[in-house]
Design a protein around this nucleic acid. Structure first.
Lengths: 352, 352
DNA sequence: CACGGTCGTCGAAGCGCTTCGAGCTTCCCG
DNA sequence: CGGGAAGCTCGAAGCGCTTCGACGACCGTG
């Protein structure tokens, strides 16, 4: 009863043995109480849990990983390249961390710049159980690696060839489509898409291309005149590109903006070009809700469901980790929220 | 020579024993080659390294952490609260990850919302060797915890009581000071500070208060009339607050903006209020360079050296991990870059 | 030529945890 | 009332790595 060993020698660093001793049970019993992998009587369980609390026991992550071959950590590979919009990225990241915690996992942060070698190192070192990659390109050099890696992964975004992979994303094709349909329904005849910087298209980023395709093909199907134009995110470029669009299409009355960073600039530049929103031109943005709401006037928008995508990525990964089969592609439906930036076109141009 | 054991049984998951066998040395020798903690002859080293490469060996992180009591992982605790500007956050994060890799460490991402309990768990589980915390508040509940934790930590930002801690940040007091001095040197007599949303001040966030103090006290010292005004980040608030400032101080000719998200709105609202930048009013911003450069007109600004702060935080943490003493506070000097948004005030108001 | 001192290498003892097989009780049913 | 099945718990064997003490070989020295 007064065994001096009842108290651990080092006050920090309480081990499972300390707990076992304190509770008067075997180490393995403590382990089973904590993992729930075998039936333990209610009384024993309570005694153990009490000791755990009293001693402030936290399992050593390294030892646990070594013995169980599960680190309970997932890697999140973020891009951090130019042309990405950071707020959305952070929303993803937050959602991933939060959701992972719900599954009792932690998140290791990697930047994509480190390249395939780092991915391989992390995977091979058994430091993580699985990976989530963001900002996947059409021909991403990391994709072939993923196929040969022994750890499961989930991609946010779709590469050109997605067979054998698990991918999640907003359905950008549909997003482009929804925007055009909204404008068409209002009566607009001539529409334009102001997109991401050219470099993003050149990099063959899937979502940019798919949005453009959805936009262009839907416009064609509905018999609207359409132009698609990449755009840098500074004020001068925005103004220049907009001016160019009006040159090429004077009766332009509907604008889809798929470039979150440029949204503000667009709203600033249009008045400067003598166009009032939505009287002279209707604007639909593809961007997070907060950006759309903060703008003046508030923007009709298709939101990028960053949080939902992040959650979905984690839950998919968890299912793969537990051996379940999961669908190869998960496309989330876009939702359009109508706000103050769209209306029926003025009459004159259409008569014209 | 043709011992079948020369080839590891599981092609993935190569262990140090496989390497030792392949190189014909003891396991401990391989370990010493890799860690460099004991002298090893050049020939043996080469042989071992060749085997490592040939087998594609990556040490098991869990086992290494368990045996060495070092995880080679640091935790990065991000805020993700409202009022924070995300791009800067990401710059910090990137810098931290990149710098950590240079010290052969990985980064575990935590969100601050999880609270002290999670911090304690991570620290106690030996999953990380040290912590870096961002967006520290004056009276941060995590700070007392850090003091009792057995793991070293570095804060980005200063709490009210920083004794016994290691903190890094831009010298925001000086930043406020530099802005005012610049405006004063140009001849401005009446200046205003448009700051973070009120909630940020209420939360007692250090940098907001210190900037304001630097601004106000310097204005006083130089004999300028000054007003400091919190501000939300949407267009209407910006416009309202600006209008209010001009009401209270019609001759206002110098404006310091310490709110990155509002910078764009300010530049949009000023013309709407009939003021041209910099003819009628000079604007200095405290924000990342890219924001300042992207604005129209390009903004004279004090940049937030996110990258440098991130690097510094990691190097400080590494020094603490290796047992070195480090200074309690590290304040980085602000640097003002003059761009197109400031000039001497128009003559009329001063004569007036 | 014997002696102590390096240098380079090895073997073995853990690090703290999970998990497997086995053992002890209890309980139920024939 | 005996036998088998459940229900709980225990002990021991690793997981893959680091690190300590030891040992043989080789060197220069007295």
């Amino acid at each position: 009863m007064s065994d001096p060993n009842l108290v651990p020698k080092r006050p920090d660093m309480v081990t499972i043995a300390d707990v076992a001793r304190h509770a008067g049970v075997a180490v393995s019993t403590v382990s089973y109480v904590l993992s729930g992998k075998r039936a333990i009587s209610a009384t024993t369980r309570e005694r153990v849990l009490t000791s755990v609390r009293k001693l402030g026991y936290h399992p050593n992550a390294g030892a646990r990983a070594l013995a169980s071959r599960r680190a309970n950590v997932i890697a999140l590979v973020l891009p951090l390249r130019s042309g990405m919009h950071l707020p959305v990225l952070m929303q993803f990241a937050t959602a991933v961390v939060t959701t992972a915690r719900r599954f009792d996992h932690d998140v290791l942060l990697m930047t994509a710049d480190e390249g395939p070698a780092e991915l391989r190192r992390i995977a091979a070192s058994a430091m993580v159980d699985g990976l989530i990659l963001m900002d996947v390109e059409m021909h991403d050099p990391r994709v072939p690696l993923l196929r040969e890696l022994e750890r499961p992964s989930v991609l946010i975004g779709f590469p050109a060839d997605a067979t054998g992979l698990t991918c999640v994303d907003l359905d950008f094709y549909q997003a482009g489509q929804v925007c055009v349909e909204h404008l068409a329904r209002l009566g607009h005849q001539r529409v334009a898409l102001l997109g991401a910087p050219a470099v993003v298209y050149d990099r063959d980023t899937g979502y940019a291309h798919r949005t453009r395709a959805g936009f262009t093909e839907t416009a064609q199907r509905l018999g609207l005149a359409s132009i698609a134009q990449p755009c840098e995110e500074n004020f001068d470029s925005v103004r220049r590109e907009l001016a160019g669009l009006f040159d090429r299409q004077p009766d332009l009355s509907g604008l889809v903006v798929h470039n979150e960073a440029a949204v503000g600039q667009v709203l600033a530049a249009l008045p400067a070009l003598g166009r009032t929103v939505p009287r002279d031109i209707s604007v639909v943005a593809i961007c997070p809700d907060e950006v759309a709401e903060r703008a003046a006037p508030a923007l009709t928008s298709v939101l990028i469901p960053a949080e939902e995508v992040g959650q979905r990525a984690v839950t998919l990964l968890m299912e793969k980790l537990s051996g379940k089969e999961v669908p190869e592609g998960t496309l989330l439906d876009p939702r359009l929220t109508v706000r103050a930036s769209t209306s029926a076109p003025a009459l004159s141009p259409t008569v014209h």
